[in-house]
Design a protein around this nucleic acid. Structure first.
Lengths: 299, 299
DNA sequence: ATTTTGTTTTTTATCTACAATAAACATTTT
DNA sequence: AAAATGTTTATTGTAGATAAAAAACAAAAT
């Protein structure tokens, strides 16, 4: 088959889950905009909802007849985009214990294992290569460079340059700027999490990402933003595999964030730089400690 | 057809051009290594050279019978890799006057215009997207972000962060390091070019790239190296279109480079930072001035 | 024993085809 | 007239096929 209708299925699930009985639905363009899909897909969703007897649809009249149940929704395997499936599968592979740096990556084999065509795998690898974890020799195979100590150090160096830059820019934002409100909200979330740290320490990574993303947006630089995407992906998958001492690590990080936030709010550039450096220094240690032992040895 | 044999043709041309009558040729693996291709391709080259009566080939005996002429070589259109063809064609397009930021990029149209399949164009665009000049909306078209003022400023900011870092690292390289020898050679090349600046100012861009590449290698950071690739591509194509005041601009840059080199050689970190900043500041101005007028206006 | 050549297999690069999705165009309704 | 719906067209995303190129294996020569 040429293409899975995952966009349709995923949007269908989202829309069905939000339906409330006896309400009237808006126009097709509006539904499409709400879901972030084209009107063609929105119509396909309405068609199916109608066929399933969930809504009555006649031109402008669209009324919800009944609440959809779980059985009306598509199973989650069918709603994942191919890109996500490949990404998960690939990350699992390269974070597995037997994935040694220097290992060859075979497009065809990967495609077969995931159950997909080679084109999609190729395109994924090309996109993924920007994260510096794999490398290609033209007309030949990809090589896994891996989560090595070098990788962590290079990543940390660039991260520090970028974040110092972004933090300084953040400190220069004018008073009424939206970012200050967002920062205050994030500060409160930190306090809330700290109050219940034993239960909630696992949620820290989400908060961490929100915080750093907010900082980086202040620099309004596409290269910095792109790099932060890379960091986010790496951290996302990497920390799923390395959960040692998460509570202590996260609690310490929260305190550092609070210092950092206070410095930002003070507007004192020297204080900002100091707090930022302090946090980045310990973030670097955390990253280095979380490396898989195998990868630390090899180059 | 599935794939053009451009690797073969390009390597054939290279090898044929270097042949000298009555010499004996080395073993197949050695030829392959010299040319940077596989032995299969090397054998294909030997087979053709033999068929064309340019060499006599019998197992280990390989003697050059006659000097190949220009007519023995493949025409240059047939030796360019598809990737290069697409890159040139695409850059020409986005640097053309009517390429306004915000413009849609159509894969199929591009492919037809270049005379290639859509897959190759897609893959090129994905690779190219890391340079921040184009952006994709999923399930929809690519958008040209263009050589805008924002692009130049963001590029320059990151460039400055990276180069200051690399220059500082360079200053810390140990005495006997190869980089110092390379730097001295580049210094001499600068003096040589300066002595004959009216004739040679057009060659500066090559020297410029060599110099900055040498600096960046000192940081041993894959992200910095990758970013410099982006800069190099952008400059390579961009300056082909913008040649105003090249002589003055390049002469000034040479002087700045020489100051910069002297600072590096002094090992004085404060002096390095100062010279580096001075050069980067004027490089930024040059970049901003070279922007096409159209792109400066729009966001 | 190692290197070289001969032969076969594997893998990549690229094209083409087609369903899903988006976008454009035409008609109807408010 | 503007917005919604109905219909058609264009474009993207993905699979599958195939020649080129690389890599692996086998036999022969130093």
């Amino acid at each position: 088959m040429a293409r899975q209708n995952t966009v349709f299925k995923e949007a269908y699930n989202r829309y069905a889950a939000a339906l409330r009985t006896d309400t009237a639905l808006p126009s097709e363009p509006e539904i499409a905009a709400q879901l972030g899909v084209s009107r063609s897909t929105a119509r396909a969703i309405l068609t199916r909802l109608s066929e399933e007897g969930i809504i009555r649809w006649n031109k402008r009249q669209k009324t919800v007849l009944r609440q959809p149940t779980d059985r009306d929704l598509f199973p989650s395997e069918e709603t994942d985009s191919l890109h996500d499936i490949i990404e998960r599968s690939f990350m699992q592979r390269i974070l597995a214990d037997d994935a040694a740096p220097g290992m060859q990556i075979n497009e065809l084999e990967l495609a077969r294992e995931i159950g997909t065509g080679t084109t999609s795998v190729r395109e994924f690898l090309i996109r993924f290569s920007r994260f510096g974890l794999i490398e290609k020799r033209p007309n030949s195979h990809w090589t896994l460079k891996g989560f090595t100590r070098e990788f962590a150090l290079e990543l940390a160096d660039v991260r520090e340059m970028f974040e110092l830059h972004s933090a300084a820019e953040f400190g220069r934002l004018p008073q009424g700027h939206q970012a200050w409100t967002d920062l205050a909200a994030i500060r409160d979330d930190h306090h809330a999490m700290l109050a219940d740290i034993n239960q909630r320490f696992r949620d820290f990574s989400v908060l961490d990402e929100r915080f750093h993303l907010l900082i980086h947006r202040a620099s309004k630089n596409r290269f910095i933003a792109d790099f932060y995407d890379a960091i986010a992906i790496v951290f996302h998958y990497h920390y799923q595999w390395n959960k040692t001492a998460a509570r202590e690590r996260n609690e310490r990080a929260i305190h550092e964030h609070l210092d950092y936030i206070a410095a930002l709010e003070s507007g004192d550039q020297a204080a900002i730089e100091k707090a930022c450096r302090a946090h980045l220094h310990s973030a670097r240690q955390t990253l280095l400690q979380s490396l898989p032992q195998l990868a630390t040895e090899t180059a």
